[in-house]
Design a protein around this nucleic acid. Structure first.
Length: 871
RNA sequence: GGGUGAUUAGCUCAGUUGGCUAGAGCAUCUCGUUUACACCGAGAGGGUCGGGGGUUCGAGUCCCUCAUCACCCACCA
């Protein structure tokens, strides 16, 4: 089949993906004798479509997977999706709101039915998109966090932690979102800057400052710094009466050093039920707490006449009342402060004290390498001791800092979409609450009711690397313990710990850290050996892409439709460095589309020579040279990919393919083609390029019928030998050609001959040199004349009269100056005793060689200049 | 308030333990339609590596300092 002149990605890609799927080459084989390699795809949220960040992650993982496969490993790249409890729940509630109904009206069951319908649609879209990007995942092993098998593991781990005393239930202050009626973890809180009023109020003998007067009804403690001299006469525990919003209150003095004496008056009252800091003060001093605001964000009866009002309505009325009572001292208008919001849905967080489930991160109950450690300690240990390596290493600091400040993890949520907590309650005969914590529901005839709360989404995601590897069939057997399940699952035995976790750095805490926490505990293994973190992809103007600003969003699917998946993949990794954000500019995508087309056209050229022969051998100097370059390139790319240097690998491929192969070897082959070698070089270039640009390479492979098995199933092979001297001879010819071209272009001359003194290399390759350099012809002479080339060991002249070469003379003089300065720099270096004593011998030898080369060239250049001046 | 990272050609970015005569792509300029490719070929110009100081035989790379930008954490009563 004759290839068309340009590579049309959209015409080739879908068929190729189908070919890969049909030939089942991405299926892992746990029983294989080959070395195993495993990587888990971070499961995308089933809330919509994939964004450009997913495209980057998918590309990097695909490169790793294909590279490992070509190294002859048995590769498992496991795909899947996340039920994304909070975001999904928020989305469905939003839908309901638009329809004018509330979740309470339709009930839990109907709500879940709707949600399931929505996510299954969303999942289809996502899976399609993953295919479009060319991801070589094992679809047969696709997993879902809210599926039965994974839910079983979620329950197992919950129960195990509960039995080990690592999960407890308690009254704690949580981040309550009245909008979604759930609490969220600290990490899910997002602060937004807001200008508001700051009120100074009179409170007994003190003045206090607040931005939130509506929380103040129950305040009966006044707190100040113990060392604050202004208030030295007050002692802890002193009491006084104060006129307050709804009449007189009895207040108590508390001294605590969290108070900043320089803020406001240095005195504050506290509301432990609705503030983290206040709650902690109350804990330390054993103080009363009272709820002021209910879970829907309305004031409670303690607010007296304001009972039932929403915060926004109540605030101005409260201030009005304070004013009439003469308690309002001052109002500052533009007070800048941060409002806590839920990062999903942006409900304003109202701290509340609630009975919740927590994971204790400080209790030493995790057995790790023979020691009992706390979750915090395990998470620190595995990274510090190098069991897990984070790339780039700079994220270590962030990781440790996060763990140092980690508090107990609140894992219960009040939303409906998610894993319902496996806890049941009942009353015993004394009316005392009885708790039943188990993977299965209690069977006794007592009346049990299940805890209505669900688990934080990240609890199930934390199990992703191993829960996905447990045999789903086994999970139906409840006689098996978690240990049994792990032991009897071939996939877990073969693929865990996984080799790499590749993900965006912004979920290092949410997810990566928690996988480490849960996996070390549940399996005794690390979840992965290496964590590779990629940066954010920014819009063309450098800002973050955000859903609220649709014009900033680059849709990967649109880009792929226009330029092809390979072009997008290559654009994303070109110049990318781990952990740093990058801007995706259109010109970059075009460049890489062109790259794919270049490869396509090399193949078109090679296609002309028909089918190859098994007898491949280099003959001419160009053959030896291209083989040498191919081997070097292959080794370097393999090394780069082994070390996660994606951009470097691509850079080397780019220049090999474009500069060496297309511009030199293909051109040389037009003089004399070694057909079999040409095909051999192309085949192996395709193999090397395949992990980076899978579609176009496979398209060529298929079109040229290179093998029965797809390119995606091929392995790197040991390349045939080449001769060093021959290869270097081509380099000499290349230099000669380049210099000739430069001079001809500079002088804007054509139809010039090259003449040379007897030289076997030039004699043998005169057709090649003539064709590549564009000279009229080559002649052997006994005496040279014209412009002598300065860059070569042989004596070669351009047969042009020197009078025509004024520009060239200028150039020569410039070069002479440059050479002189280099020479003096290198000589100084070599005269420096400290340098000679301390620099490594290779560096010194390199310097000597450089100096030598410069000197040799200088002689040539000077001689040429003299010849000019003699005219 | 605490911390981290960035600053290299007009633009987007590489530069792995210090050895660099600082690279690439795009853009610019010159020449060129030689049938694999104009999504092309040949050639050229363009940077005192943010400023200042230091360590070293040697600094884009390490240290200090300043400036600007980005991000993270904490949270302001």
């Amino acid at each position: 089949m004759k290839l068309p002149p340009t590579y049309d990605a959209s015409a080739n890609e879908p068929e190729i993906y189908k070919l890969w799927e049909d030939s089942n080459i991405f299926a892992a084989d746990a029983k294989s004798q080959k070395e195993h390699f495993s990587i888990m795809m971070p499961p995308p949220n089933e809330t919509g479509t994939l964004h450009i960040g997913h495209a980057l992650g998918t590309t990097l993982q695909d490169i790793l997977a294909r590279h490992a496969r070509m190294q002859g490993k048995d590769v498992l790249w496991l795909p899947g999706t996340d039920h994304a409890a909070l975001p999904t729940n928020a989305l469905i509630e939003e839908q309901l709101r638009k329809e004018g109904i509330t979740k309470h009206e339709i009930g839990r069951e109907e709500f879940l039915r709707r949600t399931k319908e929505f996510v299954s649609q969303s999942r289809n879209t996502i899976n399609k998109q993953i295919k479009v990007m060319g991801a070589s995942v094992d679809w047969g092993r696709s997993r879902y966090t809210l599926s039965d098998p994974l839910s079983r593991i979620v329950n197992e781990v919950f129960v195990k932690m509960y039995n080990d005393g690592l999960i407890y239930r308690g009254y704690r202050i949580v981040n309550w979102d009245p909008k979604l009626e759930t609490n969220v973890s600290d990490d899910e809180v997002e602060y937004m800057e807001e200008k508001t009023k700051l009120y100074t109020l009179k409170y007994g003998p003190f003045e206090i400052v607040t931005a939130r007067p509506e929380t103040k009804f129950g305040d009966k403690y006044v707190v100040m710094h113990p060392d604050d001299k202004r208030y030295a006469k007050y002692r802890e525990g002193d009491q006084f009466e104060a006129e307050w919003i709804n009449g007189k209150v009895k207040a108590t003095i508390i001294k605590d050093d969290v108070i900043d004496p320089s803020f406001g008056t240095g005195v504050m009252t506290i509301t432990p039920w609705h503030s983290q800091v206040d709650f902690e003060i109350a804990e330390r001093h054993n103080l009363d707490r009272e709820q002021i605001i209910d879970l829907q964000g309305r004031l409670l009866p303690i607010a007296g006449e304001f009972n039932g009002l929403e915060i926004d309505q109540a605030r101005p009325k409260i201030i009005e009342k304070l004013k009439t009572k003469g308690l309002l001292v001052n109002v500052e208008d533009n007070y800048l402060h941060n409002v806590a919001t839920n990062s999903r849905g942006h409900g304003i967080i109202e701290p509340q004290i609630r009975l919740q489930w927590f994971i204790d991160v400080n209790k030493p109950a995790v057995l790790w390498k023979g020691k009992k450690l706390s979750f915090k300690q395990v998470m620190q240990t595995v990274v510090r001791e190098g069991d897990i390596k984070i790339i780039p290493a700079t994220f270590d600091k962030m990781y440790f800092h996060w763990i140092d400040n980690l508090r107990d993890w609140c894992i219960s949520r009040q939303i409906w979409w998610g894993h319902q907590i496996p806890v049941w309650y009942s009353e015993d005969h004394n009316g005392q609450e009885e708790i039943y914590v188990s993977v299965l529901a209690p069977k006794s005839d007592k009346k049990w009711h299940r805890d209505p709360d669900t688990l934080d989404t990240w609890f199930s995601s934390a199990l992703w690397t191993f829960a996905t590897l447990i045999d789903p069939v086994l999970t139906k057997n409840y006689d098996l313990s978690l240990e049994d399940l792990l032991k009897n699952s071939p996939d877990f035995q073969a693929y865990h710990p996984t080799d790499v976790m590749e993900t965006a750095w912004d979920i290092l805490f949410f997810w990566v850290a928690r996988m480490i926490l849960a996996t070390t505990y549940a399996t005794g293994q690390i979840p992965f050996k290496t964590v590779y973190l990629h940066g954010l992809v920014m819009s063309e103007n450098g800002g973050k892409m955000s859903k609220s600003k649709p014009e900033t969003i680059i849709d990967p699917i649109e880009v792929i439709n226009e330029y092809g998946a390979d072009a997008l993949r290559l654009a994303l990794i070109q110049g990318m460095t781990a952990g740093s954000s990058q801007k995706l500019v259109r010109s970059k995508v075009i460049t890489n589309r062109n790259f794919c087309n270049k490869l396509w056209n090399i193949a078109r050229y090679v296609e002309n020579f028909g089918q190859g022969n098994n007898q491949v051998a280099p003959q001419d100097i160009a053959d030896h040279w291209i083989l040498k370059r191919l081997i070097q390139t292959k080794d370097k790319i393999n090394n780069d990919l082994d070390n996660f240097r994606f951009s470097d690998a691509y850079n080397k491929l780019y220049h090999f393919l474009w500069d060496d192969l297309a511009d030199w070897y293909v051109e040389a082959s037009k003089v004399k083609a070694n057909k079999d070698l040409l095909i051999y070089i192309l085949k192996n270039t395709l193999i090397i390029a395949h992990p980076l640009a899978p579609y176009v390479t496979e398209a060529i492979w298929q079109n040229l019928n290179y093998d029965d098995r797809p390119l995606a199933a091929q392995s790197y092979i040991r390349l045939i030998d080449h001769d060093e001297v021959m290869a270097n001879n081509f380099s000499l010819v290349k230099d000669l050609v380049s210099e000739t071209r430069r001079i001809l272009h500079l002088l804007n001359e054509k139809d010039i001959s090259l003449i040379y003194l007897k030289d076997e290399l030039i004699y043998k390759n005169q057709t090649l040199i003539k064709k590549l350099s564009g000279v009229k012809d080559l002649k052997e002479v006994s005496v040279g004349s014209g412009l002598k080339l300065t860059g070569l060991t042989s004596s070669v002249w351009l047969a042009i009269s020197p009078e025509k070469a004024e520009d060239y003379l200028k150039k020569l003089k410039q070069r002479k100056e440059q050479h002189l300065s280099h020479i003096s720099r290198l000589e100084n270096r070599l005269n420096n005793k400290s340098y000679l004593n301390q620099a490594p011998i290779e560096v010194i030898n390199e310097t000597k060689k450089q100096l030598d080369d410069f000197k040799k060239q200088l002689i040539e250049i000077s001689r040429e200049i003299k010849a000019f001046e003699a005219i």
